[in-house]
Each structure stands twice: as structure tokens, then as C-alpha cells.
């Protein structure tokens, strides 16, 4: 393809990314570095501050809750809307926090789906293949998208309104304390590549368009789409990061780490399902994780 077409594709995907993902890396880094004016996150570092943070979210009628309620009619997040707001929380800090994470993850799956649909050619693929690409790609995308929210000391949650410390997450009981540690390790390394939101948009599309997902019916058109996005990413990185040598190769290498993290993450969820009596998995996440790996 012509360079101009590849540039247009990069712009298109960046615009879609800005449209569907409410907390960009630019915003997140501004919050984390204290350069976002009045937008100072509430810090959760122990049980007391966790309770206060929950109150803050529940009383504040955040956009998150509004979105949950807005999507309730579609049966995607309604189950957890009822779990989180106004009714008795499930026992235990860990499970309650886990449910909030599930709620946000289900919403994020919806955002990623809309982004995937904006990739030129995606909606023309066999519908079953679209499902397969999302099923296998979406957790990789979600984990990758945690990186901009993280630094070595903790992570932004709840659309950047809260910063939860890594030490607090590590203090939760097993296996909850093990769930985010690998993501912190990955993020700290990934963040050294200093990708911006426009780079991320292209990289997410590359991940979604992986032609080697199990059960794909028609691999060829997926590989063709991915090849074009790869060319666009390569060119974009050269222009956007002229001094960063081999950045394209370094970015692509991260795909291996992401796959491993998804395998480990799903194993932890399966373990939770066996060990936690009260454990309730969101139907959308259940659908994605069933027979995944």
C-alpha cells in the first residue's frame, strides 16, 4: 500500500481509539505525574481507604455507573450493576473488589469490540471469525491497556479517579494478590518503550487481527488486514519515534508476553471458580474464557 494510505489508516485507528476508550494514556500519565490540575486521584492503600474509595465512587454517580446503567438493558453489565450499587456487597474485600474489576472488564470488552468494528475490513470478515478474534484477543488487549494506567507503585482504576497501590494489592489474600503482579512487571517494562496513544491504537489492531487464533475459518483475509496494519504501525513508529531503534521489533515481541499472561490469568480465574464458594463470573467474561486455552 502507498505510504499515504498507511498514514490515513493510522489516523483513522487513532480517532476510533479516542472515540471508544475514555481514559487515554495521555490523560492517565498526566494524572499519574500530577499534571492534571484538580484531577488528583483518591489513593487506596489500605482497607480503610478502600472503604472510603468505594463510598466516593458510589456517592459520586460516576460516569462508570452511568454507563453501567445505560448498558443495563443490553444484558451486558446489569448483573453487576445490582451487585455493586445499592445492595449488600458479597463477603470479603477481595471478592467485592474482584466484582468491581469484572464489571469494568465487561464494559471494556464492549469498548474493544466497538474499536475492533472500526478497523477497516473487520466487519466484513466471517462473523464467526470476528467472534474468535475477539474471544482470543480481547484479554490481551485489556492487559495491554492497563500499562498506561500503571507505574511501579500502583495503578489508576475507576477511569482515573482512584490510584490503588501495588503494596495494597499484594496484601490481599491468595490468589487475589497474585492477579495483578505479573501485569505490573509487564507494564513497567512495556512503558519504557514510551508508546503514545496513536501507537497503541495500531498495536491493538495488530493484536486483534491475529490469524493464528484457534478455530478461525478463513485465515487469509485476516492475515491480509493484519499485514496492512503492520505496515502502518512500522511506518508510524519510524515517524513518531525516529530515534528509537528497532522499536517496531520490540513492540511485536511483547505479543508473546501478552499471550502467556492471558494463559496464566485464565488459570487463576479457573482456580478461583473452584476455591471460592461465592464466586460469580460475569456472563460475558464467562463466555470469553470458556474453552479459551
Amino acid at each position: 500500500p502507498e505510504a499515504a494510505d498507511l498514514r490515513a489508516l493510522a489516523r483513522h485507528l487513532y480517532e476510533a481509539y479516542l472515540k471508544y476508550f475514555p481514559l487515554t494514556k495521555a490523560k492517565a500519565r498526566a494524572i499519574l505525574s500530577g499534571k492534571s490540575g484538580d484531577n488528583v486521584p483518591f489513593v487506596i492503600h489500605d482497607i480503610k481507604s478502600l472503604m472510603e474509595g468505594e463510598q466516593l465512587i458510589n456517592n459520586g454517580q460516576t460516569s462508570f455507573q452511568e454507563q453501567q446503567i445505560a448498558t443495563a438493558g443490553h444484558g451486558v453489565t446489569h448483573t453487576f450493576t445490582h451487585c455493586n450499587i445499592g445492595s449488600e456487597p458479597p463477603d470479603g474485600v477481595e471478592l467485592r473488589f474482584f466484582y468491581s474489576c469484572q464489571s469494568r472488564s465487561a464494559e471494556a470488552v464492549r469498548e474493544v469490540t466497538e474499536f475492533a468494528k472500526s478497523i477497516p475490513g473487520f466487519v466484513n470478515l466471517d462473523l464467526n471469525d470476528q467472534v474468535t478474534l475477539l474471544k482470543y484477543g480481547v484479554i490481551e488487549v485489556l492487559i495491554l491497556m492497563m500499562s498506561p494506567l500503571m507505574n511501579k507503585d500502583g495503578t489508576l482504576i475507576s477511569y482515573g479517579q482512584i490510584f490503588m497501590t501495588r503494596e495494597f494489592l499484594k496484601s490481599l489474600r491468595k490468589p487475589f494478590c497474585q492477579m495483578l503482579e505479573p501485569k505490573f512487571d509487564f507494564s513497567v517494562k512495556f512503558n519504557t518503550l514510551e508508546l503514545d496513544d496513536s501507537d497503541m491504537a495500531l498495536f491493538l489492531a495488530v493484536i486483534i487481527l491475529s490469524g493464528d487464533r484457534p478455530g478461525l475459518l478463513n485465515v487469509k483475509p485476516i492475515e491480509q488486514l493484519q499485514e496492512t496494519v503492520l505496515h502502518s504501525l512500522e511506518l508510524h513508529l519510524k515517524i513518531n519515534h525516529p530515534d528509537s531503534l528497532q522499536l517496531f521489533a520490540k513492540v511485536l515481541q511483547k505479543m508473546t508476553d501478552l499471550r502467556q499472561m492471558v494463559t496464566d490469568h485464565v488459570q487463576l480465574i479457573q482456580l478461583l471458580k473452584k476455591t471460592e464458594v461465592d464466586m460469580f463470573l460475569h456472563p460475558l467474561l464467562q463466555e470469553i474464557m470458556k474453552d479459551l486455552y
Binding site: E66, H74, G75, T113, K117, L127, Q130, V131
Partner: peptide, 20 residues
């Protein structure tokens, strides 16, 4: 198709709160 009915629905309908 039954196994992934929510994903199917998300792919076929726009459920963006903006468009609701």
C-alpha cells in the same frame, strides 16, 4: 453461536451509550 451469544450481540449491535 449459542456459546458466544453476548459477543455476537456486541458485534452485531452498537451498544455504545452515546448512541443509546
Amino acid at each position: 453461536k449459542e456459546k458466544h451469544k453476548i459477543l455476537h450481540r456486541l458485534l452485531q449491535n452498537s451498544t455504545s451509550p452515546v448512541e443509546l
